[in-house]
Design a protein around this nucleic acid. Sequence first.
DNA 1: AAGCAATCTGAACGAGGCCTGAGCGGCTCG
DNA 2: CGAGCCGCTCAGGCCTCGTTCAGATTGCTT
Lengths: 221, 221
Amino acid sequence: MRVLIVEDEPALAFRLQQMLEGAGFTVDVAYDGEEGWHLGDTEPYDAVVLDLGLPRIDGVTVLNRWREAGRTMPVLILTARSRWSEKMAGFNAGADDYLVKPFEMEEVVYRLRALIRRASGHAQPELTCGALRLDTNGGRVSVDGAPVQVTAQEFRILSYLMHHADRIVSRTELAEHVYDRHFDLDSNSLEVLVGRIRKKIGAAYIQTVRGQGYKLTEPEA
Amino acid sequence: MRVLIVEDEPALAFRLQQMLEGAGFTVDVAYDGEEGWHLGDTEPYDAVVLDLGLPRIDGVTVLNRWREAGRTMPVLILTARSRWSEKMAGFNAGADDYLVKPFEMEEVVYRLRALIRRASGHAQPELTCGALRLDTNGGRVSVDGAPVQVTAQEFRILSYLMHHADRIVSRTELAEHVYDRHFDLDSNSLEVLVGRIRKKIGAAYIQTVRGQGYKLTEPEA
DNA sequence: AAGCAATCTGAACGAGGCCTGAGCGGCTCG
DNA sequence: CGAGCCGCTCAGGCCTCGTTCAGATTGCTT
């Protein structure tokens, strides 16, 4: 999953980035409102962490512009305790959740995962597809109850596919959500990784739709 | 189904083309109003995506000319948020739907499919003919509830025939709507593909009307 | 009923998409 | 500093799809 952090204070931005990357997210960072707005407008993020106090364009405005332009990704707002009115403005502009500073770093991770899950229509932190099971919080995968060892990258790919099960996900879409913005599109590393995932969970789960992409489905009985 | 994109900004045109081809459409692209007008006037499209801000001839004029010439294919207009009056002019000139920039790429696909369906008199995204069933959005085909695997090209042909069920569709018409403008007319690949479709869904659905074309009908009981 | 054109069909091919095994460089951890 | 793992690259090969072609079949015409 790919998230955008919009935070002007370098130290906090860095800690957030560390935390999120450690948690398995692909992360882009913007250090002011304008850059943040532009990135959120052009790149496909699964979620955004948005500080409200920002140079150049403030957070509420950024969010407003995204929503007006029809961007629907979940946004987690960061706000100082005192700025109550700001928070309300943020909700009105279409924020999905908020955290009051100071907060626990891990809190951000859990909330983001929940937001992303809900945005793709899943209430529970455990995603299942037939006997295949993926725990978004624990980072564990199992088939038929038997744990399956997957690497970080494999987990990202499988997680994205499971969030969008029964839908064809194009190679490009997958790459956009699993890699950051400097990914080489002619690489076939996705194919290699998908191949390895198939070998681990059983080939039947991930179908190839020629010319269009991959589709994760429950295998036929 | 074959669509025309009239869009001067190369990046957007390219993304649209990618998206639509990925969605199974046959796509022609025009990069200015004059070329767009000419193509729309001479080639038989199932739908058109028309940007209003165009060099040489602007979108509204292009649309007006088509309508005056009696061209009735559905037109989806793309417009910037600010250009409200333009949009109204577009509707007056006979646009069928519009999207405000920026928009989600997938939105274009769904709207186009809906426009094409409605233009051929179908309200639902699922077309049926007896026990034969085709899901225009999901790209799935089934007979008697049993899913049938069809290739991309087979799906295009079957989809066109189902959109125009109970009507004789000439070989030429079929070719024009399933291939782009560089198709070799002496090829018999259509016959081969129709044959394969028959083998998959049952031969009775597609009748050959000698000397005229094909007709898709519900088989006799 | 023969002749002829239109259509069908099975086989084969070429292109391109996709997969996979091997190897390499970088990173982490001991 | 060395070992092990991970993700990427590359090349070769497989498999599918759309097409072509030739020969069979159908249906109309005379």
